[in-house]
Amino acid sequence: MSFTNHRKMQLYGALLLLPAAVLLTTFAYLPTVTTVINSLFLPGFRGAPTEFVGLENYQVLFDDPTFWKVARNNLIYAVGTIPTSIALALGMALFVNGKLRGRGVVRMAYFTPTILPMIAAANIWMFFYAP
């Protein structure tokens, strides 16, 4: 492959990734950075300017016993549900992949809840654009 052809393929790949990168930056990275920056300030009330407090907000958060209780509950929930859901999904996939009478019907029963919201949304948009 020539150098110019290689460069064209790199540009093509970058252009294909550009929409996803813009959306990810707009809806994931930018709000996260903005939230971290805003967390370093106290909001001003009734038109008063915001006040920079640095890490004081985090100190107040870490000193709050409710925060630690909520963090513990979230950790327990995550440790309990994530491995369980992965094990169930893997077990169901192995079950459906095996020799099974009516395998197509079982697969359809598993896949239907995934596809139905997309069908409903498509019908709603079809109603809007072609009444």
Rank of each mutant, 00 (worst) to 15 (best):
T84I: 14
Y58Q: 09
L16Q: 08
L17N: 11
R107W: 06
V79Y: 08
R107H: 09
L88H: 01
P83N: 09
G104I: 08
A122G: 11
E56Q: 10
K8M: 12
T81R: 06
L23S: 11
I76H: 15
L18S: 13
P65G: 03
M92E: 05
A130C: 10
V106C: 01
V22R: 06
R7L: 14
L61N: 02
T66Q: 10
H6Y: 04
L100E: 03
Y58M: 05
L100C: 01
D63C: 05
A78T: 12
T66V: 04
I115E: 07
M108L: 01
L15F: 04
S2K: 10
Y12V: 07
W125Y: 06
R101W: 10
A14T: 15
P65V: 08
F128K: 11
Y77G: 01
N123E: 15
A130H: 13
T50K: 07
I37P: 01
A78V: 11
F45M: 13
L23E: 04
E51F: 08
P19S: 07
N38T: 12
F128M: 01
N97W: 05
I115T: 10
E56R: 02
V105G: 00
V60A: 08
F62G: 11
L11R: 14
V36D: 05
D63K: 14
A71P: 02
D64E: 10
G104Q: 05
T4C: 02
P117N: 13
H6C: 12
N74R: 07
W125Q: 11
F95W: 07
G47A: 03
F128A: 04
L42D: 10
I119S: 05
F41C: 00
M118H: 15
K99D: 02
A28T: 12
A20R: 00
N73T: 14
F45I: 15
T34S: 09
Y129L: 00
K99H: 03
F62S: 02
A130I: 02
T25H: 11
A48I: 09
Y58C: 02
N74I: 08
N123L: 15
R72P: 01
N38R: 14
V96F: 12
L15W: 04
T66Y: 10
N57A: 07
L18K: 07
Q10E: 10
G91S: 15
E56H: 08
L40Q: 12
M108G: 02
P49V: 05
L100A: 09
P83E: 09
R101L: 04
T4V: 14
A93D: 11
A14Q: 10
M108C: 01
N97P: 00
T34C: 03
T35R: 07
N74G: 12
L30A: 11
G102H: 07
L116E: 06
Y29C: 04
G54F: 00
